[in-house]
Nucleic acid binder design. Structure first.
Length: 426
RNA sequence: GGAGGGGUGGGUGAGUGGUUUAAACCACCAGACUGUAAAUCUGGCGCUCGAAAGGGCUUCGCAGGUUCGAAUCCUGCCCCCUCCA
């Protein structure tokens, strides 16, 4: 099966940093034999964000050309922790936890990747049978100098940061995965390059055909600086509701937007270049392009209707600063000297606040806190002082508010609550 | 086993007895501006009482101590790093 040039260029260029060895990889593709595409994940962090989606889209693309994904549940490596992270030792996960995390990962994974062309395996299928002898055999094959070559290790070593011995095991185990499943191609971000290469090396040491390494760019997160990651809270999760996803995409910086187009949509490289020129020449409105981006990516996870609604929501609340369609309700109940506030949000729970001489008059800061619109009363007061509070679309600066059924309180741009009198049975 | 260095707020990191709730930067929040939850500018960013002015409490690995006063000095403990062996 000879691939046409457009398809091939798409596979080789979009959202790719490097392919080792590209020529071999192209030959494999042209031969048309189904390839085993290796992808591993760490079940201690089961959330998939757009940074991962770059790779998943690539897998999907190759699946459509007839190849097969082998997904490895890293139930052993999860206990070590990838050396790029800071915490060296991690708590052991029980089998149940691993399986629960794996399930939630799979649910997200198959939003992009074709389930029917995927085989899922647990690392423990092979590592469960390992003995110390096998481990020693593995460790003997590489040297300290080789491992200190790895950028992460080198940097940490220079900076006098700890490196646990077990962390050296991480690349080894990941490499052995490639042997165990006889992978033809392994996928990873640029931070994975070392691990992918160790896999390639180990395979050939053990008499297998070495895998190709497919290295993808790291996506910069919504802060515009650091790579997207959950711990930095600059991520867009595939699990997020459409409104949230659309909104977060709109907060991607104008300059970064083009990378997102390149890595996460089917827009061609030429089209991306055109956009770049148009933006430079001021002939395109960045916001329009970004809406297109937000819609395109959200559409990959939700039906068109949801995307339209998310867009409408954005235009309403952010652009026109109008109230959203659905406002979470916050119930109140007046009793002598105190008022109990019960937001719909169960995490907040019912809270008591004091009322003034007039029993339906309360401190708005207290109300904002009790409604869950601010983390503390201090924060609520700060927000009030910063004129971030609106009551029924009018900026509210006074410290007091009259409780009434149906009043809408807005804090900042995105936090809303509609009061409801619980004594007035409908 | 020996010698030395170090543990500071969500992160990086300054601060070695007193206007220190702790510089600066990042992240975050708000306001202004804007065709964007972009960029830029301004402000904010422990908890609590108070309408406010202002007050109380809590915070620099942990526990004690010295002192009118400690992130800063002393003692013990825990943890990390480097070098030697």
């Amino acid at each position: 099966m000879k691939l046409n040039d457009v398809v091939l260029q798409n596979v080789l260029r979009k959202g790719v940093v490097e392919i080792i060895v590209e020529e071999e990889f192209v030959n494999l593709l042209q031969e048309g034999q189904p390839l085993r595409l290796k992808m591993g994940f760490d079940p201690s962090r089961p959330d998939i964000h757009l940074g991962h989606v770059i790779g998943l889209r690539k897998l999907r693309q190759l699946q459509e050309l007839g190849h097969k994904v082998v997904l490895i549940v890293g139930d052993w490596t999860a206990q070590i922790g990838d050396p790029s992270g800071e915490s060296a030792t991690r708590p052991m996960l029980t089998h149940e936890q691993v399986m629960a995390n794996a399930q939630s990962y799979l649910d997200q994974f198959f939003r992009v990747v074709d389930k029917d062309r995927t085989e899922t395996v647990l690392q423990s299928e092979w590592f469960g049978k390992f003995t110390l002898a096998t481990v020693l055999d593995l460790t003997r094959r590489f040297t300290l100098a080789q491992f200190l070559e790895r950028d992460d290790f080198a940097r940490r070593y220079k900076a006098n940061r700890p490196i646990a011995i077990t962390e050296f095991l991480y690349p080894l185990l990941q490499a052995y995965d490639s042997v165990a499943i006889k992978s033809d191609v392994e996928f990873g971000g640029t931070d994975q390059k070392f691990n992918l290469l160790v896999g390639r090396q180990l395979q050939s040491m053990m008499g297998q055909k070495p895998q190709q390494c497919f290295i993808m760019p790291l996506l910069v997160g919504t802060d515009g600086v650091q790579k997207m990651s959950k711990s930095l809270d600059n991520y867009i999760g595939v699990d997020e509701p459409p409104q949230e996803m659309f909104g977060k995409l709109m907060s991607v910086s104008d300059t970064l937007m083009l990378d997102y187009f390149d890595y996460l949509t089917d827009v061609t490289a030429e089209e991306v270049e055109e956009m770049r020129r148009a933006l430079d020449a001021d002939s395109a409105n960045p916001m329009d392009l970004k809406k297109k981006l937000a819609a395109d990516i959200t559409r990959q996870f939700y039906p068109q209707q949801d995307v339209l609604e998310a867009r409408a929501h954005f235009e309403r609340t952010v652009q026109r600063r109008q109230l959203p369609e659905d406002i979470p309700q916050v119930g109140f109940k007046i009793s002598p000297s105190t008022v109990s506030i019960s937001p719909d949000d169960a995490d907040v729970g019912t809270r008591q606040i004091n009322s003034s001489e007039q029993r339906d008059r309360v401190s708005i800061a207290d109300l904002i806190w009790a409604s869950g619109l601010a983390k503390s009363k201090g924060e609520a007061k700060r927000l009030l002082a910063q004129s971030a509070v609106e009551v029924d679309q009018v900026r509210h600066c006074e410290p007091w508010i009259q409780l009434r059924d149906g009043v809408v309180i807005r804090v900042g741009r995105r936090r809303f609550a509609r009061l409801a009198n619980l004594d007035q049975s409908p």
